[in-house]
């Protein structure tokens, strides 16, 4: 039995629900025991760090302090979300590297009766734990429905292989871990050159045009390599490529349809778990066709209600004819 303290992070209960559900589904076959950190709080994502340094690190460190108190036969905290993983790792690392930071953060923690000594805990990502503790042989032995013929683009995103303070990953830019894991499931893994390129992060919210271009590059590369599906290990990447693929298509006048799911979802179906239980159907860019390639039927989740009379909703000036939309060549008159 592999046991870890578990920091789920906010996304797992919302936008990355498919990640959480599929993780729960693969726990029994992998004998993966997770003990949730009691009363954990948000890690602040990339937002709090931009505003105020000591509060940002204190917010992260409260989780570390709670986890250290809860140590229950393990000193390893496992985080499945990239941003959470990096923030926890970063706080632990920088509090040691810069003792002044450690002191200030502990001064703040003391106001809540807490304390954290950097180095007390190991911070690790789910993929790392599966590959290095559970092992690919165990994973292989659980596969009852190999993903033969499914072309998968492994997409790790930024914040797990970089900056990698503890040097746990095989490479900063072209790590092989996720490829190996997908190969263990029997999938045909494409050598995806953009496997650690950026999805745009929060730019989908604050600077969409910057983000659309980054999303386009990724989706276009996956399609050029004839991937059936992309797999990721990061809630932000999944959200950006899935939920904003439509807007990206509108922006560039393209018509990409590249489903992106969490690696745990493919693990679950390879282990013979029902696709619905593995969180399939929650993606906005449907993975139905991809799953049909391995002979699986995905349940249709409740379809969003048809939009009201007009797509634009509020009374507004008429949109330009389609041919003048941005990103499209103007047709010859």
């Amino acid at each position: 039995m592999n046991k870890y303290l578990f920091y789920p992070g906010c996304s797992m209960e919302g936008s990355a629900r498919a990640y959480y559900e599929s993780l729960k589904a693969i726990q029994p076959p992998l004998a993966l025991e997770l003990e949730e950190i009691e009363d954990w709080n948000c890690c602040g994502a990339t937002e709090y760090l931009s505003i105020n340094l000591i509060p940002a690190y204190s917010l992260i460190a409260r989780n570390l302090a709670l986890a250290a108190q809860q140590k229950n036969g393990t000193d390893t905290v496992m985080a499945p979300c990239s941003a959470c993983y990096l923030n926890l790792e970063k706080a632990d690392y920088y509090m040691a590297e810069r003792p002044a930071l450690g002191e200030k953060v502990n001064e703040a923690l003391a106001a809540g009766g807490l304390h954290y000594d950097p180095g007390t805990l190991q911070i690790r990502h789910l993929v790392d734990v599966i590959i290095n503790d559970i092992g690919l042989e165990t994973v292989k032995s659980k596969v009852v429905r190999p993903l033969t013929g499914l072309r998968v683009a492994p997409y790790l995103g930024c914040m797990v292989p970089r900056p990698d303070f503890a040097k746990r990953w095989s490479d900063h830019e072209h790590p092989s871990e996720l490829d190996d894991l997908m190969k263990a499931l029997g999938a045909e893994v494409i050598d995806f050159p953009m496997k650690t390129s950026c999805c745009g992060g929060h730019m989908t919210q604050i600077g969409p045009e910057t983000a659309y271009e980054l999303i386009r590059r990724l989706v276009a590369a996956a399609e050029e390599h004839q991937a059936d599906i992309m797999v990721t290990m990061c809630p932000m990447c999944q959200m950006n490529l899935d939920a904003y693929q439509g807007e990206t298509n509108r922006h560039f006048g393209t018509n990409y349809h590249m489903p992106i799911v969490f690696f745990t979802q493919l693990m679950a179906v390879a282990f013979g778990i029902d696709p619905k239980q593995a969180g399939f159907g929650l993606e906005l860019v449907s993975a139905k066709e991809a799953l049909a390639r391995i002979g699986l039927n995905v349940p249709e989740e409740a379809k969003p209600a048809a939009p009201r009379r007009k797509p634009e909703g509020l009374p507004m000036p008429k949109p330009l004819p389609k041919k003048y939309a941005s990103g499209q060549a103007v047709a010859e008159e």
């Binding site: 810069r98 106001a111 809540g112």
Partner: peptide
């Protein structure tokens, strides 16, 4: 309480 205290501190 932690954040309130943290806001009074600066890294030097």
């Amino acid at each position: 309480a932690i954040l309130e205290k943290a806001k009074t501190l600066e890294l030097t």
